[in-house]
Structures are given as structure tokens and as C-alpha cells.
Design a protein around this nucleic acid. Sequence first.
DNA 1: ATCGTCACTTACCTTTCAGTCAGTACCTGA
DNA 2: TCAGGTACTGACTGAAAGGTAAGTGACGAT
Lengths: 112, 112
Amino acid sequence: MVAAMPYSCGLDAASDVIGGKWKPRILWALHHGPRRFGELRKEIPGVTEKMLIQQLRELESRDIVHREVYHQVPPKVEYSLTTLGESLNEALAPLDAWGADHLAALELTRSA
Amino acid sequence: MVAAMPYSCGLDAASDVIGGKWKPRILWALHHGPRRFGELRKEIPGVTEKMLIQQLRELESRDIVHREVYHQVPPKVEYSLTTLGESLNEALAPLDAWGADHLAALELTRSA
DNA sequence: ATCGTCACTTACCTTTCAGTCAGTACCTGA
DNA sequence: TCAGGTACTGACTGAAAGGTAAGTGACGAT
């Protein structure tokens, strides 16, 4: 095994943070404000509980999302973007716009 | 198995295109002009020939990079960004800047 | 005749990612 | 007493991504 290399560029670091199938969707869902675990599950079609938690934990450990526990019954946990998370989302916006602009072309060249 | 879903948002489409360990680096390397296969190999530390070709072929099939063969001996193949590739790179710039801005913080929270 | 360059190609193996499914703990309302 | 909601946790499994190492073919130089 190789020792961890420092990130070679900003893009490298960023894709490490948003890597994985579900992280971009989570960021997207949180864009409009705090969400409970169950709400996220409903808003992100296809995600399983395991994956959702796993990705949320990773984002939390990177200080992208904040996890707030309300000690109630039934339990309530709210996830929201941190300042860092908000700035990441802003940096992601042009990429989303690019994807939206070229959606048709990209659909045509899927799964070669 | 599920039939291919249409992309749920632009971000979804974009990450499908730049997904994979090496694609962002390839895009980055091509940012400054056309490159030969061997040049890319040298400029992208750690990439193997197999990976480099595989990712280049995928980018080519998505019309992000252009492949130009010069029928010489020894052979010469040049890769360059298409118009679509250039626009993708521009959309990627803010993300790279974000990563660069928060490099130090991100290094600290690696590999939880 | 063999070597080296360049751009691949192939076979095989390991690691990582993602998915299923079952279970936990707590309290509420019927 | 017992189903139901809420937020998890963990074992197991299969698929996909990534890596290693070796080989190919054209041709010019030595």
C-alpha cells in the first residue's frame, strides 16, 4: 500500500469530498434548508437507509453537513449544510448548470 | 436490474461524465493544450497506461476529448479538448478553486 | 538480427462501493 | 400487549472500479 498522497489539485480534493453515488444528491437536497433523516430518504429516490447514513456521516466528518439531534420521542435528527457545505454547493452550481445545458447530448452518449 | 433512469439533475449527468479516478486529472492536463499519450502519462503521476487509455476512450465517446492519429512511425496520437470539453472545464473551475481554498481543512479530515 | 520507441491490448487479481436484509432501542397510541 | 414510527447498526454478498504485468505491431537505428 502507498502512503496517502497530498491532493494534487483542488479538483482532486473536491472530488474526494463529493465522491460516491449519493453525496451530490444529498447536498442538493439540503440546499433548500435543513432536513430530517426520514425526509432525505423520501426526497432522494432509490437511496437505502444504510447508504444515506453512511454518506451523511462522511459528509459530517468533513464538516460539510451539521447533525443536530433533538432528544424527543420519537427521535428527531436534523441535517443541514455548514458554511463550508454552502460554499461547496455554490462551487457545484456551475457544474450542475453545465450538466443541465448538455443533458440531451449526454443522454445520447450514455453507456458506450 | 432497473432500466436506466434519466439523469435526475445536471449534477447527476456531470458526475457521470467526470466520474472515475482519473478523468478530472486528464481534463486538467488537457486544459493547457493538446497532449500526446506519452505526455499525459508523464504529467499525471500514478496513472497506468491501461487506466489512461480507458478513461480517454470514455471521454472520447462522450465527445469531451478529441483523438487525432498521425500515421507516422513511431505512431503519434494527440488528445485535445472538444468545445464541449472546454465548457466542462470551465464549469469545473469553481470546484477546483473551492478545493484549493479549503485544501488545508480537507487534508485534516481525510480518511475518517 | 536485435533493440528501442510509441501507443496500445489482454488476462488476471485485489480493493472498494453499494445493495439486501435483519436487528436494536425508545416511546406512543389502539 | 402489540403494531408502528424514528433513527440507526451490522453481517453478508455481488458488482464495479482499479491495479499489475506482460505482450503486440510497425519501423528505424545500430
